[in-house]
Amino acid sequence: MPTATPTREPGTRGVRLVFVLLALTVLSGMIDAVSYLGLGHVFTANMTGNVVVLGFAAAGAPGFSVPHSAASLAAFLLGAATGGRVAARFGGGARRRWMRATLAAEAALVAAAAVVALTRTGGTATTYTLIGLTAFAMGLRNANVRKLGVPDLTATTVLTTTLTGLVAESHLGDATRPRSPRRVAAVLALIAGAVLGAWLVLHQGLGVPLLVAAAVSGVLAVVTSGRE
């Protein structure tokens, strides 16, 4: 009598993909460390923060720039629109293929930013180039991560919803999901990326953390090429 093939529990499916998304969350912290600390207090990954910063700049708060924040937002939205088209073209049945393509593109864009940062002599053009490349890459990635629809990891650059769910559904809230390892891991991943990115910016400049982020994105593109 044939033995039925055991069905994996939902929580065990896509472990590799969960790892990839958590690693991307680490990279988001690094990218924002570069942009906020090195490009004039602008976020290129976390658009919630960037919109708030844009408001600060519009009000005339010192240390913030309307053009920088607006450029970041525009590049991010352009990247998101491009990512949406990529996802529509490849379709839901080939998620690894279009995720791999997206990560490869992100690696190339961030690598280009690293080259600019390592060879730059400063100036307005360099700043806008770095903002544009990194924000476009983050928009491209986020559009595709959203299409994946992985529970608790639908975004790799912002954690407001994640933190709300983590507490509201814990024992302190309605206790519907007292344990949420993915949410906890996502929070820790972003913090770890921010710490690492800030340390590298302060001690190595802007190019090194961007180069590290590009290399990791490239590795992740290879990791996603495996079978479902």
Rank of each mutant, 00 (worst) to 15 (best):
A114P: 10
A94H: 15
H68N: 12
A80L: 14
E106R: 12
M47W: 01
R120S: 15
A74D: 01
V86H: 03
L22C: 12
T121H: 15
T82N: 04
P67N: 09
D32K: 02
F43W: 11
M99T: 12
V116F: 13
T121P: 00
L54S: 01
P67V: 05
R97M: 14
T119R: 15
A57D: 05
G122A: 11
H41W: 00
L78T: 12
T25I: 11
G38L: 04
A45F: 00
G122D: 05
L21D: 08
V51R: 04
L73W: 05
L73E: 00
M99N: 06
T82H: 10
T121F: 10
L54A: 08
A23Q: 06
A111P: 07
A113D: 08
I31T: 11
R96G: 01
H41A: 15
L24W: 06
G38A: 05
M99I: 09
A75H: 00
R96S: 03
R100D: 00
V26H: 07
T121V: 14
G122F: 03
T102H: 03
V115I: 15
L118I: 02
L118H: 09
L39G: 01
R97H: 13
G91L: 06
V52Q: 10
L21I: 10
A75E: 02
A88W: 02
A117C: 02
L39I: 06
G83M: 03
R89Y: 09
S35P: 11
A74G: 09
L37E: 10
V110T: 02
G38I: 05
A108Y: 12
S72W: 05
H41G: 00
A101D: 07
G92C: 05
L73S: 01
S65A: 09
A74T: 12
L118R: 10
S35R: 02
A87S: 08
L54D: 05
M47A: 04
R89I: 00
G93Y: 07
L22W: 14
N46A: 09
A108L: 15
M47P: 01
A105E: 01
V52G: 04
A61E: 14
L78G: 11
G83F: 04
A58C: 06
D32S: 02
A88L: 13
H41L: 13
S65H: 10
L39F: 08
L54F: 02
G38V: 05
H68W: 10
L78H: 04
A59P: 03
T121K: 13
S65G: 04
A107T: 07
G63H: 15
A75V: 06
G83K: 02
G79N: 05
L27K: 07
G63L: 15
L37A: 11
S65Y: 03
N46I: 01
G91I: 02
A94Q: 15
H68I: 02
A75P: 01
E106S: 05
A70C: 05
R120F: 08
L54Y: 00
G49D: 10
G93P: 03
